[in-house]
Design a protein around this nucleic acid. Sequence first.
DNA 1: CTGAAAGCGCTTACAG
DNA 2: CTGAAAGCGCTTACAG
Lengths: 341, 341
Amino acid sequence: MKGKATSFDIAHHAGVSQSTVSRALRGSPLVNEETRRRVIEIARELNYKVDKNASNLRAQQSSTLAVLLFEDPTSDDSQINPFFLSMLGSITRACAKEGYDLLVSFQSSSNDWHADYAETHRADGIILLGYGDYIDYQSKFARLLDTDTKFVCWGASVDGRPELTVSCDNHLGGRLVAEHFIEQGRTNCAFIGDASHHSPEFSARFNGFEERLQESGKHVSERKVATAISTEESGYQATKSLLANDIPFNALFGASDLIAIGAIRALQEVGLRVPQDVSVVGFDDIAIARFCSPPLSTVQQNTTLAGQMLVANLLNLIAEQAVDLPNSILPPKLIVRQSSQ
Amino acid sequence: MKGKATSFDIAHHAGVSQSTVSRALRGSPLVNEETRRRVIEIARELNYKVDKNASNLRAQQSSTLAVLLFEDPTSDDSQINPFFLSMLGSITRACAKEGYDLLVSFQSSSNDWHADYAETHRADGIILLGYGDYIDYQSKFARLLDTDTKFVCWGASVDGRPELTVSCDNHLGGRLVAEHFIEQGRTNCAFIGDASHHSPEFSARFNGFEERLQESGKHVSERKVATAISTEESGYQATKSLLANDIPFNALFGASDLIAIGAIRALQEVGLRVPQDVSVVGFDDIAIARFCSPPLSTVQQNTTLAGQMLVANLLNLIAEQAVDLPNSILPPKLIVRQSSQ
DNA sequence: CTGAAAGCGCTTACAG
DNA sequence: CTGAAAGCGCTTACAG
């Protein structure tokens, strides 16, 4: 009878009805403690485990969340941004703590999302992760809202539904970087990333950065901004193109760590020293940042907290409870390492 | 009727029986093509999706695999070894390609594994990932075998069941590193890792390394071996303790990249230059290896292939088909970077 | 090729 | 506190 026992088997052995077995095992108060003990004991002996498919079907919920990790369309297929991998880790832990299983799926952001986890009852809700095109997303969000799918999103905000988003205070993060450069007297700044409205997170970082600079009477010249997606290679190429313009700068803000690391490679390649000639700061604080050369200054996002909040907010949404908006914006923290001092 | 349609609804609209709807949607040949087209069309209109809980329950299988990532008991809770994260990525892709969903769970290797994914029918099979204590694992493997759970394991072999393992040829990997050191005339070697039988992968790397050295009439003195688990900090500490012995060496093999990176930090801290004074090679080729300072030479494991094979072998196991053993050992590849030349 | 029916293994009103 | 019964939404023999 290896791994095959059903609640009827337990009921038979315990001399009670199958309903009672179910109640006892689910911790229902409607069951005598002595009976419960006996049922639990027998269930253990027979190595009985509740069949999740059956209980999910009956209870019309799956106790499972799904995380969709969508990748930049042009990014290297094999390399996932370590930042999101780290988020994935904290989401996994947060789910486990809440007694939920976690389904993981990678999606290329160019395709339609396989968002039918909810519709097929495989998951009660969905967590969306990824840097991508904001404009592109809104229609996909609309489809999710249309099918009444419960979801929360990291970073990109959903039109008119701020409670569906958890994000870092990217604007403040950008300000912190500018402040740091100002303190060092490095105000001839370049920015590598995407300052357009296609990348809400990157542009918020840029806007905060620019805002703080302007408060000091400085600003980032348009000619010192180059567009890049969040990969090392893209950061490298964008910086190369900037250097080709032959316009000097003494500080560079990369919209993500991967971009900043690529930028450092491009700078070093033409003989510029980091930080002596150009001070470089990234964003994310991925594990690599500590170990690259020179160690990278960056704006840290608290992924542990982020994962917990994504899960907590999603579970609230599923339970149809109000989600506490103000707490869903996490504070960034500047980490100064050698690349900027 | 948003997202609520059942197969009966489709049947009603299409003027056929519910059985026919099910057959049509599952691609059964027992259905007229014209009928099928109509059913599919109506299903799309009504945004009907098959309820996975119901179909799983009825068909007694879940089309889901679970991956258990167990972590070194002493490793930092927040940081998962990037190597396994990368494996996780390739497993996720491989699953998707096979039409399977993937559940992810982190387990601390000290605890009992929550291996009841199979018993509760949440997953058809389990993939085990992690560096850990081999001795400790055998009893856990025994329990899985006992409950007739389908599983495959990365790295650590299961007593008497070689077909359940996919791994890198760690012994050959160790040989490659020794060969590289010999070519450079760096044969006064140290090893940081765990050469005991508790860590089968690490000790295989060590044994291959030692074997090749001995073929050249050299060997690793016991006093130049220090034990470490796969974290940067542990590699750092182990190297410190080795340096404290004041026995010189001019080459160091770290059993994993994280260990090697910690070793480099320890070496540089006491003023030893890498690679001029000590040549360093790691194992895994995690993303960080390319970016650390100096860039780390290492033995690359093909995680994409590894993920595919783990999934393929597990699916074979589930289908009760013979698993092709010889192919389950992947070739390692030496990547030479600055840290060793 | 199609339909009526059984049944997967639970949860949960309903009735005591 | 307990039991008999209905039913979650499918898949799949069985009978045409």
